[in-house]
Simulated scan of single mutants.
Amino acid sequence: MTESRPTDAAHPSPRELADRARRLADDRGARVLIGIAGAPGAGKSTLAEALVAELGARAALVPMDGFHYSQHVLGLLGRAERKGAPDTFDAEGLAALLARIRTASGPVYAPTFDRSIEQPIAAGTVVPPSSDIVVVEGNYLLLDDGPWAGLRELLDDAWFIRVAPEERMRRLVERHMRFGRTREAAEAWANDVDEPNARLIEASAGRADVTLAF
């Protein structure tokens, strides 16, 4: 990227972001990894999917949520009631996968996450050799401590999404209700579990190359 790149952008379109990604890959002449981070409900998945659709065959999507511990493991660890916190993910596994994706000459299979069953799915997606832009999306890509600290250096460009807090909370409550919680339970989870995580994630925003406001 050139030194004149913006450090923030308001309401950028998928086409504008796709142009940025293409320029980066073309300048490097090699596969690049673009990280999209932000708090729960910020719209990371929606933006990542739109970006990959805009980029077409050049791009592949790797969701951090595929590295959720399973419900069985969370139960063994006593962390099921905090699902979504940093220590409920296999951060080392994600880092190893990103390092492999950077240098692989063949297809690389990555896990995904199925919200309908609240479980990770092994080899749920593939990064084909033809994809020179890999979009990685997740809450904790920019954390600077513990097993997450090394992830930032594996990303060629890091984007942080911000959205109005009330809108983000509305999305979270609706999401939790869509997957089976009552409104009361959805609001409790959003306030008691998601919001502490959101504050932690927001503190990592300064490690991004660009902040996207929606």
Rank of each mutant, 00 (worst) to 15 (best):
R23G: 12
D145H: 13
V108T: 11
P40V: 03
L77K: 14
D65N: 12
G66Y: 03
A48I: 07
G56L: 05
H72C: 04
R58I: 00
P63I: 02
T112L: 03
H11A: 15
P165A: 12
L141K: 01
E92W: 02
S4G: 11
A91T: 06
V127E: 10
M169E: 13
R31V: 07
K44P: 10
A21F: 14
E167M: 11
R152V: 11
T112K: 02
A21D: 13
L98F: 07
E137Q: 06
A104L: 11
A85E: 09
L94V: 02
P63G: 09
V135Q: 03
S116H: 14
A110Y: 11
D192F: 04
S105M: 10
I101Y: 05
G146D: 04
V127D: 09
N197S: 04
T46M: 04
A122S: 14
D145P: 06
L151M: 11
G138P: 01
D156C: 10
R28V: 12
R102S: 13
E167V: 14
L172C: 05
G29A: 09
V136R: 00
S116V: 08
E187R: 08
R183V: 05
E16D: 15
D145T: 14
G38A: 02
L33M: 12
R23M: 09
V52D: 10
R15Y: 07
V62Q: 03
V32S: 08
R168L: 02
D26V: 05
A10N: 05
D145A: 14
V73L: 13
R23I: 11
V135E: 08
E92Y: 02
W148K: 01
E3L: 14
D157M: 09
F160C: 11
L172E: 00
A53E: 13
R168K: 10
P196S: 04
A85C: 05
A30I: 04
P6F: 06
L98V: 11
G150Y: 07
A95C: 10
A99I: 07
L98M: 13
A198G: 06
A85Q: 03
G43L: 01
A57V: 11
A110R: 00
T7P: 01
G138A: 09
E137R: 02
G66D: 05
A110N: 03
A60I: 00
P12C: 11
Y109W: 10
A50S: 13
I161G: 03
S13G: 12
D145V: 10
G138V: 00
A99P: 08
F113R: 01
N191S: 14
M1C: 10
R171S: 09
V32P: 00
M177W: 01
E195A: 03
F179C: 11
G124P: 07
D26N: 07
R79Q: 13
